[in-house]
Design a protein around this nucleic acid. Structure first.
Lengths: 328, 328
DNA sequence: CTGAAAGCGCTTACAG
DNA sequence: CTGAAAGCGCTTACAG
């Protein structure tokens, strides 16, 4: 049997005699032969691997997203090469696409000015942005409709009678927090109250920063009665801060997060939050990326999943009536 | 300039004329040439990639470990290919080593009977076990000294006057929980009390199972006064359960975890726990694996890092005096 | 349906 | 110090 025939059997080519196929399979089985992937990659110029850049793994949202991406990639028979966006990860991902060790790239923590991302796009590499978005970039982008999410929270607070609403934001320049703030602010304005700048705290997406932000807000003579935190991690910090000051949640102040990470439903927090459909997001991102690898001329698409309000006991209001949830 | 010369410049060979080198570098720069990694891998039979199998990403310990492994691998100029041990991840990792897409494998969730792990070892693949251990396996193993950790907790409880000590274990057959239990049990026996089987709860390494275990223990007529949880996640569940029943921590019952994940220091928990040196663990694991790839004849080593008790306010005792901490 | 041959893009003896 | 050539292990026209 020739090399060529074995290769045809392996690739499932129809032009192999069934008898030959059986003999090849038997030989393969007895020798334990496994094709060398590097040789195959060189010949076909397809690596079967996708690079993924994730960040701030201290935020449990990323591990969740990573797990979902891993599942989708492996379902599509792709390997996953991982980099941490802290440090030189994004640059390493760019090198990998240039060296042809991955066929495409998933960025989960893109910001406007991530040079390796720009360079990857300039080199025509297949790229998809997940979670974060950068409006000016010509690539597929998939994530939660953060503006609509912020609006939803504002509408929920306002409809429940809150007139002093605050927000604890993440770092400026990061699309998720900026968009959530924009929606929240616009909708508070629409309900006639607006978002006063003294009632906006800002810090890293972390528990300690949520803690600090809430302390500052509660320290005021007119503390807010409802606080929207740009993600769940900030919300946990905010709740812990309120408790440490003897302020009851939701009795004295309501707290709402964003992401619905697993911890949000733990008894310690019971956090009202906006859920992102992580599995659908990962599925959509992988599907689009593989489609683009197969056909680089595809038009780029930005896909935003509608937010969903999950009410738990860090707020005391019933969930919004459907007519309040649908876009105004 | 020939292909060979370019290759020599790229590999930093000393036998290139400085002038030639400069011209090559200039040409490289102006063309933006990047060598194809698949071709290089085929020629050198080194991929520059390491496979990592992680699991239960719902436990924040794994993301921490993953981040540390990522940092160490990239510092060593290795790419990281990732699989989730839930599902067919371990099998995919085995395939990858056979197909020569990775040079070695890191397993973080090995159990005694993980066939792909056995097969990888049978195929003489470079493998290191991190976190979990399997005594009968001939491969490098790196992790916390869990037996000593369990002993340390028992000594701390006993020295603080507790006579009704309980444990919430993880799933049987997983080395971490089994070893921690063994140490805890042995030391409780040594202090004259032992670990009564009614005071042992067992379940998945998860918040809900810790919750359930604690409820069961507190439901007794003689509830325990101190509970050792096999990991932090179980401990958080246990603390939440105690609170929901109006049982004060540490006033009525002490709780101690294992791992010292970031959440352990959050205000909501302030969990006393055993710290694992994650960075050193990852560094040691990567170093050993790369050494084995370079020289497969190296003897296998099991390295255990000493545990360290971190006292926070889920227990009320001062940390142990040094003479109590050192091995009995 | 099958096999001989070319060629993917490197690295590394080997000869000069 | 430099280049021509072989060869790593595949896949795929091409010829039969």
């Amino acid at each position: 049997m020739s090399q060529a025939t074995v290769s045809r059997v392996l690739s499932g080519s129809p032009k192999v005699h069934p008898g030959t196929r059986a003999r090849v399979l038997a030989a393969l089985d007895s020798t334990g032969y496994v094709p060398n992937q590097a040789a195959r990659a060189m010949r076909t110029s397809r690596t079967g691997a996708i690079g993924v850049v994730v960040g701030r793994i201290t935020n449990p949202f990323y591990p969740e997203l990573l797990t979902a991406l891993s599942r989708e990639l492996h379902a599509a028979k792709q390997r996953m090469v991982l980099w941490d966006s802290e440090g030189p990860g994004a640059q390493a991902a760019l090198d990998a696409i240039r060296q042809r060790v991955v066929d495409g790239l998933v960025f989960t923590t893109a910001t406007r000015d991530l040079p390796p991302l720009r360079q990857a796009l300039a080199a025509n590499a297949p790229v998809v942005l997940v979670n974060r978005s950068v409006p000016t970039l010509a690539c597929d982008q998939v994530g939660s409709d953060n503006v609509a999410g912020g609006q939803l929270v504002a509408r929920y607070f306002a409809a429940s009678g809150h007139r002093r609403c605050a927000m604890i934001c993440g770092p400026r320049g990061i699309s998720t927090t900026d968009e959530r703030e924009r929606g929240y602010r616009a909708e508070l304005r629409a309900t006639g109250q607006g978002l006063r700048s003294e009632l906006v705290a800002r810090g890293d997406y972390s528990h300690p920063e949520g803690h600090k932000g809430m302390r500052r807000l509660l320290d005021r003579d007119d503390p807010p009665t409802a606080v929207f935190c740009a993600n769940d991690l900030l919300a946990f910090g905010a709740i812990d801060a309120a408790r440490s000051l003897g302020v009851r949640v939701p009795g004295d102040v309501w707290v709402c997060g964003y992401d619905d990470i697993p911890m949000a439903s733990w008894e310690a927090y019971e956090l009202t939050t906006i859920r992102q459909p992580i599995d659908e997001t990962a599925e959509d991102a992988v599907r689009r990326l593989l489609a683009r690898i197969a056909d680089p001329t595809l038009p780029t698409v930005t896909h935003r999943f509608p937010p969903r309000l999950i009410v738990r006991s860090s707020t005391a209001g019933a969930p919004l009536a459907p007519e309040l949830i649908s876009p105004a």
